[in-house]
């Protein structure tokens, strides 16, 4: 289990990185935390001719908040994000989901952006990004574009990134008072990818009715998916037990889950319903609470 040969490039700044990505196009892979890429390369499931290591690119490790947006640069480690007071306060869902990723030593190398770019349909962080209505900031030599999370994930391990492009950051709107979020999952072993996971954000209006709701699932499709029927069922309801049950029951509508040795498609549909119910209950409670306790 050893990687095939490749050329190693370690750009110092973003322009250099983008030039290299432009030059090598589809032959190149970005190396961030390496916690997925190196695994794939060891198994020769990926054999890029060129590896562009972005870990030394200046400025990509910024985690900052301005104008109601939290922005995580491409080399912000999962562990940093999870432990960041800013993230805890302003995007607690990201911290809660992040704590389910692998184990501390893996998270201290792995990056949030790397997980998003990897687009594993079972992964927690892409799902959290989707539930948070986040955006992916993409750069290439020809400029920058911002892609809605809804549009970024196109299939298993595939995204709307084109050759020559890389993700420089992800952005999420800060979670405001009155919005509750929750992430729950079932993994067969602590730290493993979940069989199914649910990220939910629920906003309660002053009238106590449920306003905007976003529910995203992992392990339930070829990419992180929204449970739109469940969202619709909950939105406008009183957020009570019956409403949550109704929404949960609809969480598996339209899903076409993957199946593997950890769970069949039917089981994942089942979990989607159960976990949606649990995530919604917690998110609704948190929305009603004073603070967004995690």
């Amino acid at each position: 289990m050893k990687p095939a040969a490749f050329a190693y490039l370690a750009p110092r700044d973003l322009d250099e990185a983008l030039d290299q990505l432009a030059e090598h196009g589809a032959d190149a892979r970005v190396l961030a935390g390496g916690q997925s890429l190196v695994r794939l390369m060891n198994a020769r499931l990926a054999s890029p001719a060129v590896v562009v290591d972005i870990n030394r690119v200046a400025g990509l490790d910024a985690l900052e908040r301005h104008n109601g947006t939290l922005r995580l640069g491409a080399t912000v480690r999962q562990r940093t994000s999870e432990l960041s007071p800013d993230v805890a306060a302003h995007a607690p869902l990201l911290a809660e989901a992040g704590a389910h990723v692998a184990h501390a030593p893996v998270r201290s190398r792995g990056t949030v952006v790397g997980s998003v770019a990897f687009a594993d349909p079972s992964a927690e962080l892409p799902t959290a990004l989707l539930a948070l209505d986040g955006r992916v900031v993409v750069r290439s030599r020809s400029g920058e574009r911002t892609v809605e999370a809804d549009d970024f994930f196109t299939g298993p391990f595939t995204t709307s990134l084109a050759p020559g492009e890389m993700v420089v950051a992800v952005e999420v709107p800060v979670t405001t008072a009155g919005t509750g979020t929750a992430f729950v999952e079932v993994a067969r072993r602590h730290g493993d990818l979940p069989v199914c996971g649910v990220a939910a954000t629920v906003t309660r209006g002053d009238d106590g009715r449920v306003g905007a709701t976003r529910i995203a699932l992992c392990g339930a499709g070829e990419r992180p998916v929204r449970a739109r029927a469940a969202e619709d069922a909950l939105t406008g309801s009183d957020g009570g037990t019956d409403a949550v049950a109704e929404a949960a029951a609809r969480a598996s509508e339209g899903l076409s889950p993957i199946a593997d040795c950890h769970g069949s498609a039917d089981f994942r549909r089942h979990l989607a319903r159960v976990l949606t119910g649990r995530a919604l209950r917690t998110a609704i409670d948190r929305a009603a609470g004073e603070a967004n306790d995690v």
Partner: peptide, 28 residues
């Protein structure tokens, strides 16, 4: 060699790291 067992863990700049998931070339 998949990052799953932790047997290869060493400290890189003080951080516990799976040495099977890091290229030596990265460690200048």
């Amino acid at each position: 060699e998949q990052g799953v067992c932790g047997a290869c863990t060493v400290l890189v700049d003080g951080a516990a790291t799976r040495s099977c998931l890091v290229f030596a070339a990265q460690l200048d």
